[in-house]
């Protein structure tokens, strides 16, 4: 058996390969990164604790009706705060936004990945990314000043053509259309198009060219290849992108506040009526003049929308990470 002369141990004996103690410089580097990183975790934890603590008085007093009820009367002798119309409004606006944004985003991604020459594709990508960089207050102001009048005319046309569908029905055309979930949905769509586009673009550009070539060689047209090969292969990734967009839409605050009439008369699906809700916008609208009791109600509202958004984002990242659209190799 061979023996190492220096250490006197057998050569066949198993040794550790991991590095020895950190050098002096590395020790400081390690401490600094650990402290900075932990600071971020601590901040998140503190915010969540803050939300819970401040939400608790309202949540414990209101119980489950905080979610489903539709009365907001924070300064009565026995305060009643029920978020139902705002929560449902967030969902309605979020889904409207997603429905409007998805076709735009998928078309844009297809154009960028498959149709445009490289330089033009880069310009198009930059323009769409710029949309994501616009502060939402700017989009909100544009929404009031420029977009609303246009969207109101679209709303009227939708009502005239499709009024027989309950979604597009209005009770009184004289008091409808303006400040409706339809318009808020459009504003939200503008904000989430870049998110869905960039995820879809990524999924499309990871597609195996072999599949597309194969489909073309079988006599596929651009449209049939898109519908029968590209879309099915990338659907789970696109759904993930849509959910990420929905997450953003649910948390959107100031832009919606500008273009939506917040109302506690719940609006389930009549997107053209001038009343709707949005939890985050409601918090912003009430916060300035809130009494102590209402403050707790608004914190509870914040907690609820935080949890909903968190859940949507978690499902989205799960789906996006799992999406393996038969990648190039």
């Amino acid at each position: 058996m061979a023996i190492d002369q220096k250490s006197g141990t057998e050569l066949t004996q198993r040794r550790k390969l991991a590095a020895g103690p950190l050098s002096k410089g590395d020790k400081w580097f390690f401490r600094a990164t650990a402290i900075s990183a932990n600071f971020a975790f601590v901040l998140v934890a503190l915010i969540v604790v803050f939300l819970f603590v401040n939400a608790w008085p309202t949540l414990s007093a209101q119980g489950i009706s905080f979610i489903f009820g539709d009365i907001w009367n924070p300064d009565a002798k026995h305060p009643v705060m029920q978020l139902g119309p705002m929560l449902w409004g967030s969902i309605l606006v979020g889904f409207s936004g997603v429905l409007l944004a998805t076709p735009m985003a998928i078309s844009a991604a297809y154009l960028i990945v498959y149709l445009l020459p490289k330089p033009a594709a880069r310009v198009a990508t930059t323009i769409i990314d710029l949309l994501a960089a616009l502060p939402s207050v700017v989009i909100g102001l544009w929404g009031i000043a420029v977009f609303s009048p246009v969207a109101i005319s679209w709303a009227k046309i939708s009502n005239q053509l499709l009024g027989w569908i309950p979604i597009f029905h209005v009770k009184d055309p004289n008091s409808a259309f303006a400040d409706s979930p339809f318009i808020a949905g459009w504003i939200v769509a503008v904000m989430i198009v870049p998110i869905i586009t960039s995820v879809t673009r990524e999924i499309f550009s990871q597609m195996d060219d072999g599949l597309i070539n194969g489909a073309v060689a079988l006599g596929g047209s651009r449209f049939s290849v898109f519908r029968k090969v590209i879309l099915p292969t990338s659907s789970s990734g696109i759904i993930g992108g849509i959910l990420l967009g929905l997450g953003r839409a649910l948390g959107e605050t100031v832009a919606i506040l500008y273009v939506l009439q917040l109302s506690f008369k719940i609006n389930f699906f009549s997107v053209l009526e001038s009343r709707g809700g949005a939890v985050a916008s409601w918090i912003l609208a009430r916060f300035g003049e809130a009494s102590n009791s209402e403050f707790h109600g608004l914190m509870a509202a914040g907690l609820v929308i935080f949890l909903v958004t968190l859940a949507v984002n978690m499902v989205a990242s799960f789906i996006v990470n799992r999406a393996q659209p038969w990648r190039k190799n």
């Binding site: 195996d208 072999g210 599949l211 070539n213 194969g214 489909a215 073309v216 060689a217 079988l218 006599g219 029968k228 090969v229 099915p232 292969t233 038969w326």
Partner: peptide, 16 residues
Amino acid sequence: RIKVGMVFQKPNPFPT
């Protein structure tokens, strides 16, 4: 392309 079929280097069945 219908009259002139093609088989590629890497097998490319449609995965879905």
